[in-house]
């Protein structure tokens, strides 16, 4: 057993005892009831289970949760799909996903959303040229699998959010 304490969507969770073999996905879904994070392939190959991890230096990255032990998140701050909307209002990315009909079954959406959010935050710190944008988006979303094949719509939705505020994300 390991004592686990972390921050999820800005709120403290724990400390609480968890089994060493407990995955982060099971911790979120079964222990906390946060079922927005999906369990897909169980092998980190579809990334529907990805959450955002916030580094102390202000940078962020995504991590799968299905193959990673919960205890490895001790002391970390993470964000899940439940944390994107503020005061009942969807984020710009969420609105764009809906506007573009980016998802059908929605199983992959949390992973795509988190990955796109990390991309936005990265571009705020290190903007890219417009000519590099398509490649940048494609590379960021690469690895996320959508069985409903919404790839292009996800891509277009992310592009729209970035182009709506070019001074923020582009050089």
């Amino acid at each position: 057993m390991t004592t686990l304490a972390l921050t999820i969507n800005g709120g403290a969770q724990g400390p609480r005892e968890v089994r060493d073999d407990l995955t982060m996905n099971d911790f979120l879904r079964e222990y906390l009831g946060m079922t927005g994070t999906k369990f897909g392939c169980g092998a980190a190959q579809c990334l529907s289970c990805a959450v955002i991890v916030d580094n102390p230096d202000g940078t962020s990255y995504t991590s799968p949760t299905c193959i990673v032990p919960a205890k490895s998140f001790d002391g970390k701050a993470i964000r899940t799909v439940e944390g994107h909307a503020k005061n009942g209002e969807l984020s710009a990315l969420q609105k764009a996903f809906i506007a573009h009909f980016a998802f059908q079954c929605g199983y992959c959406t949390a992973g795509f959303l988190n990955e796109a959010q990390v991309l936005l935050e990265r571009l705020e710190k290190t903007p890219v040229a417009r000519a590099e944008l398509e490649k940048t988006i494609a590379e960021a979303l690469d690895g996320h699998i959508c069985r409903c094949t919404g790839y292009i719509k996800y891509h277009e939705a992310v592009r729209d959010v970035i182009l709506a505020d070019p001074k923020r994300y582009l050089v």
Binding site: D21, L22, T23, A44, V53, Y61, T62, S63, P64, I67, V68, P69, S72
Partner: peptide, 10 residues
């Protein structure tokens, strides 16, 4: 991010 300090069998 995925590969921890030891094998994670689950």
């Amino acid at each position: 991010i995925c590969h921890q300090k030891a094998n994670f069998e689950p």
